[in-house]
Design a protein around this nucleic acid. Structure first.
Length: 570
RNA sequence: GGGCCUGUAGCUCAGUUGGUUAGAGCAGAGCGCUCAUAACGCUUUGGUCGUAGGUUCGAGUCCUACCGGGCCUACCA
């Protein structure tokens, strides 16, 4: 038995996430966590909301509530949606928690003591009307290069030229439109990542088998231009982790907070500590996952994230951990995902384009979404959600291949033998052959799960379902029954055991349907089939079951067309 | 501008270190079955592997150029 720490990138707090966000980190990490638990490993699966930063403050202001209140409310919304999608976090924390504040301040102090934090004086734009400093992208004006009037302070979208806010002609606040702006001198702490470039480079090089997407982004940042740059880790904001040094004010940093990217990944640790608090397990319980001097040496730590998050997880966060010179557990494998697009274009929060988590759960069961998103996950490149593809995948894979198999077996049995596993007959070549077939598919399934190749694993799982239909078709108990009810009974008995097996194997992908299957089969043992032959005789003759309702209702064309129109966007 | 990824049957994708007749699912066609959610099974049509060169006994796989799609480029997180 191994110990596996799994973290999903933290969803930002400012609103409800769309399916692209879901498939990029939460959903695949959940499948992995569920699979590893099913294999008997000890799993700690952590996620949390990422709550700090300007967008959260603005979203709160727009909603007309204090930011702390806004975040608390939105945390609950996201928690409920996560539950709705069956995300099996051991703990869903908050980056604004006391634990994260404490650990973030602790790590900053350690970095400071090790000479890895530098005070830098820089110029920032202050907006009097908004009463806040403005991040570069929240300043708009005329581009000095192309004359576009809606250039942002970091880059002109029109001509793609990178800009400084001070380059803009007639700059204004993107929040209020105010032109009452002032460039102020302000001091900030910088993390001296440049000093750790070689360390990080060697660390990245020592990792084996990481996705190309992960390492290529890290390498780019390490070697681009002058190499890895230092980064500001503080901001002039109210909402965040206060900048302190060992609990005392950090001289010159009064009233400032740590920048959200600094404290967000630390919340992986913070949330594990929150879990320990919530369960009353004590500090040793979370430290054995995170401190190599306190038991974390045998932990395998796997992170899941969208590609936008890769620089923070390959460089900034490791720089924080390594730079502290404390024995923190570092990540062993970083699984990164490309984007999911919607009908050929981008999901857009602002334009209401695409499908959001709350809407998705309103129209179909979470298993539908889980299955389609995971069996089409953007693992090797961006992938496109279309209603046509979704409808096809659900109807064919779930309804026809799996759902109908359960249906035809249980209903046939009920009509001929009643709702108990029938006795009589013996297994022969057909049963041995399909067992061999499934054994081979199962090995592939397991290998792909271990390697976190979830698209391939989904295909393997589907092939295991198909094997059941092939077997049943060849055995044809409905015609055999007329001559030899005993032989038909053996086939049905075997097929009922296949159903139970499918319930077990499918659980990481479609947990609700799996639970329904296992419940209908009245299965007491839902353990992973370490011994396939034993697993296929788990339901003995005489075992009572119930015939389940339709497991997966099909999506008719009219329904699909209606949804296509409804989600076409404004 | 720079960097990275990607282009394989109508569609979505597999194709380990270059090695026999390029695979799967969906869609299409034919046949079978009738237990089942008009479901299932079998057979089958379909590809000059983006283009042009090169390396090699041998290239979907390696190299170069070009064409197309996408992402990143550090103050969105």
């Amino acid at each position: 038995m191994a110990r596996i720490l799994v973290t999903s990138a933290l969803p930002y707090i400012n609103g409800i996430k769309h399916l692209g966000n879901l498939v990029g980190s939460q959903l695949p990490s959940d499948v992995y966590a569920r699979y590893m638990r099913a294999r008997g490993h000890e799993v700690m699966y952590i996620c949390a909301t990422d709550e700090h930063g300007t967008p959260a403050e603005l979203a709160a202001a727009k909603a007309g509530v204090p930011v702390a209140e806004f975040c608390a409310g939105m945390w609950q919304v996201q928690k409920d949606l996560a539950d709705g999608f069956g995300l099996s976090f051991d703990y869903f924390g908050r980056s604004s928690s006391a634990r994260n504040r404490e650990i973030t301040q602790h790590l900053a102090a350690a970095l400071g003591r090790n000479g890895l934090i530098e005070e830098v004086s820089e110029k920032q734009v202050y907006s009097h009307a908004d009463g806040r400093y403005l991040p570069d992208r929240y300043i708009e004006g005329t581009c000095p290069n192309c004359g576009d009037e809606n250039a942002r302070g970091d880059q002109c979208e029109n001509c793609t030229k990178q800009l400084d806010p001070t380059d803009l002609i007639n700059p204004r606040s993107a929040i209020s439109g105010s032109t009452d702006l002032e460039v102020r001198e302000t001091k900030h702490l910088y993390l001296r990542q440049s000093a750790m470039r070689e360390t990080l480079d060697k660390w990245i090089d020592s990792q084996k088998g990481w996705p190309v997407l992960t390492t290529s982004i890290a390498k780019k940042w390490l070697h681009d231009g002058d190499g890895l740059r230092d980064r500001g880790i503080t901001r002039d904001l109210d909402w965040g982790v206060p900048v302190q040094f060992d609990g005392a004010p950090w001289s010159g940093m009064e009233g400032k907070v740590f920048y959200v990217w600094f404290d967000a990944p630390i919340e992986y640790i913070g949330a594990t500590a929150e879990w320990a608090d919530a369960t009353g397990a004590g500090d040793a319980a979370w430290e054995r996952w995170w401190r190599t001097d306190k038991g974390a040496n045998d932990v395998r730590y796997v992170q899941f994230m969208g590609k936008d998050n890769v620089p923070f997880h390959t460089l900034s966060f490791p720089a924080t951990m390594i730079g502290s010179a404390e024995p923190w557990k570092l990540v062993d494998f970083i699984k990164s995902y490309n984007w999911l697009t919607y009908e050929g274009g981008k999901f857009s929060t602002s334009q209401g384009r695409g499908i959001f988590m709350d809407q998705a759960l309103d129209i179909f069961p979470s298993d539908y979404w889980r299955w389609w998103l995971l069996s089409n996950a953007p693992e090797s490149s961006d992938s496109d959600f279309t209603w046509q593809s979704f409808q096809g995948g659900i109807n064919k894979d779930l309804a026809d291949v799996l759902g109908n198999f359960v249906s035809r077996v249980t209903k046939f049995c009920r009509s001929k033998f009643g709702e108990t596993v029938p006795e009589g007959g013996t297994y022969g070549k057909a049963e041995a052959a399909v067992t061999d077939e499934i054994a081979a598919r199962l090995r592939a399934y397991q290998d792909n799960m271990e390697a976190i190749e979830l698209r391939k694993a989904a295909a393997d799982l589907r092939a295991i379902w198909v094997a059941g239909n092939e077997y049943l078709q060849a055995a044809a108990p409905w015609s055999v029954f007329k001559q030899s009810p005993e032989d038909a009974a053996a086939t049905v008995r075997f097929a009922l055991n296949l159903i139970r097996l499918y319930g077990v194997l499918s659980a990481p992908f479609i947990p609700d349907a799996s639970a329904a299957i296992l419940s209908a089969m009245n299965a007491k043992d839902a353990g992973w089939p370490e011994d396939l032959n034993a697993a296929l005789s788990a339901l003995p003759a005489g075992h009572a079951f119930s015939t389940p309702d339709v497991l997966f209702a099909k999506i008719p064309d009219e329904r699909r067309e209606e949804l296509e129109a409804r989600f076409a966007g404004a």
